[in-house]
Design a protein around this nucleic acid. Structure first.
Lengths: 341, 341
DNA sequence: GCGGTTACTGAAATCGCTTACAGCCGCCCC
DNA sequence: GGGGCGGCTGTAAGCGATTTCAGTAACCGC
């Protein structure tokens, strides 16, 4: 059926039409199940398709339908397993719905973000799911006004046409901090994430919990991380130098927590005997660290499905009925936290 | 410039041509820098583009050029940070070259693989990078014969037109096992990966090293994993039950090693005092586990760049000069290995 | 002044589909 | 017998770019 080497012209809908003895319009109708076509012709068409090995050229189709059956996903860093889990969920749903997913990693860089958005628009991608954007809202609005559906994760752009879905980051941070407080800790440090809205929210949650408990905030107890193991490690080393009396730390995500635990052990201390650690995300990995990590769970799968569903709905022309979709975080207790000595 | 709310028709090249007072041919030539166009017209065209906010429709362009400036990446599981690092490298290069990347995760499922390949072909993606394929070679050959460039990672399809790039998996496994042997271990277990060529290679390297050292192979010392922490954990638990006298284990990848270490600790043993562990991949994470993981490094970034470069070359019509591209693995010593007690 | 380049331009065909529109046929119902 | 309708079909006009081809004007060397 295929002639190796000789790169034949791919069969087009005209070839199918000719072979089946009908017009291209009929072939198109038969293949897409739009409009009626008599049974015998349908059979002839199927046979012709089979014989020629015909596959519709989706490019040509997209040119006329103005839809590409493709959505894009913009996220900061695929190397972070949390995002990878998100991708897995999104991909599962897009696959079900016969959509394809374009992945773009932006590294918290607004220029990258804008470049990609522009590109996606030019490529006529049907819509985008964007996570942790740092681009100013007004620059995003431009795309939305042009009729490009966007749903945001982890960052509100406060445009009525851009839904936001995320966990309640502030509540999650509060949960984590309150847990440490309840264990009796008073000198609780925080390792932040990369500069982005999500990091601010978690910092705010941490500070809120401390204030509510009447603990005195101490600038020496918060260090800048960047959501990676290395960032967490370095931040922890700095913290240990600046505030050696700390007894617990809440890291902005699990990866940072892992890096931080490594720094703690390297300093001769132990987790949780000398210092307790709580992370954020509940990566699959968190179960297997030594010690297993107490953390705040985000329902990655639900977030993925919900946001994708929302986007596909918008593409289909449905208006989302609410703009904010907040998932509730859950504290997962494992062995990296204990009362202070 | 933009009229919020009113979803205007997007300007086309005709609008630009009219506004600039030239033909569409000239606009096209000016924009793509193909053919000469007089300076004043060029200026007028640029002005018109600016004024209208014109962006070429890449779909229409692709229809005539038969190129989409898009490549696809098929891989088993994005949740594995090794693949994520690969993606990062590939994305960096494709971005430089003005290509976009479509991500497809296949979960070692041949049906998924074929479905995706078919889809990509229909979408006229320019080529694909496929990692760890399990689909039989002859089914892949069909796509290649149709003129669809493919480069394989971690799995040889032994077609003259499909280059293979990977680390020398067998050598890596040998390195790991020899290291344990050299430390004095004799009861060395192995946790395999998911059923795929790459797992076989690593198993073969492990067995080869044992044989060369005159150690007697023992079926009770190898357990099936699946490249995940959970798989590694479960395999280790089985191993500990079946062969409690083992003193070292070589896991097929870092994630399995992490899961396995967790199981070891859970059984009341310690790493590396009671059992030594070596992984494979050298994830960024491996530096931060407790204890830091001795592992075999694969140069993800080089593999990513090289394979992408190769694919883009093939798309541009260049024949790769060699079919096999083997990278050499490197043993990275950290603290998860020690002589047996 | 003339032939031959060279620089530049536009009309129109084309890529491979979808779809509006019009037409045809057969049937049913008055 | 005629009007109306529903089922099915084909013709042809797009979709928005690129590219071939033919042609004009300016310029150069002799």
């Amino acid at each position: 059926m295929s002639t190796p080497g000789s790169r034949r012209r791919r069969p087009t809908i005209y070839d199918v039409a000719r072979l089946a003895g009908v017009s291209t319009a009929t072939v198109s109708r038969a293949l897409n199940d739009t409009g009626q076509v008599a049974e015998p012709k349908r059979v002839a068409i199927d046979a012709a398709v089979e014989q020629l090995g015909y596959r519709p050229n989706t490019i040509a189709r997209s040119l006329v339908t103005r839809a590409t059956q493709t959505i894009a996903l913009l996220l900061p860093d695929i190397t972070n397993p949390f995002y990878a889990e998100l991708v897995t969920g999104i991909q599962a749903l897009t696959r079900e719905r016969d959509y394809t997913m374009l992945l773009c990693t932006t590294g918290f860089d607004p220029d990258q973000e804008e470049r990609y958005l522009r590109l996606l628009h030019a490529k006529h991608v049907d819509g985008a799911l964007v996570d942790g954007l740092v681009l100013p809202p007004e620059r995003i609005a431009r795309f939305v006004e042009d009729g490009f559906p966007i749903v945001c994760l982890d960052r509100d752009v406060s445009s009525p046409d851009v839904p936001l879905v995320q966990v309640d980051n502030r509540m999650g941070a509060r949960l984590a901090t309150e847990h440490l407080l309840a264990l009796g800790h008073r000198r609780i440090a925080h390792i932040t994430g990369a500069p982005a809205r999500i990091s601010e929210e978690r910092l705010l949650g941490y500070q809120g919990a401390l204030e509510a408990a009447g603990a005195t905030p101490d600038a020496a107890l918060v260090a800048r991380g960047d959501f990676t193991e290395t960032g967490g490690h370095d931040a922890m080393a700095a913290l240990l130098a600046a505030a050696p009396d700390l007894t617990a730390v809440f890291a902005a995500n699990d990866l940072s927590a892992i890096g931080a635990m490594n720094a703690i052990v390297a300093s001769g201390r132990s987790v949780p005997d000398d210092v307790s650690m709580v992370g954020f995300d509940d990566l699959r990995l968190a179960r297997y660290t030594a010690p297993p990590l107490t953390t705040v769970r985000q329902p990655a799968d639900e977030i993925a499905r919900h946001s994708t569903e929302l986007l596909l709905g918008m593409i289909a022309g449905r208006k989302p009925r609410q703009r904010h979709h907040l998932f509730v975080p859950e504290l997962i207790l494992r062995s990296s936290t204990a009362p202070p000595r």
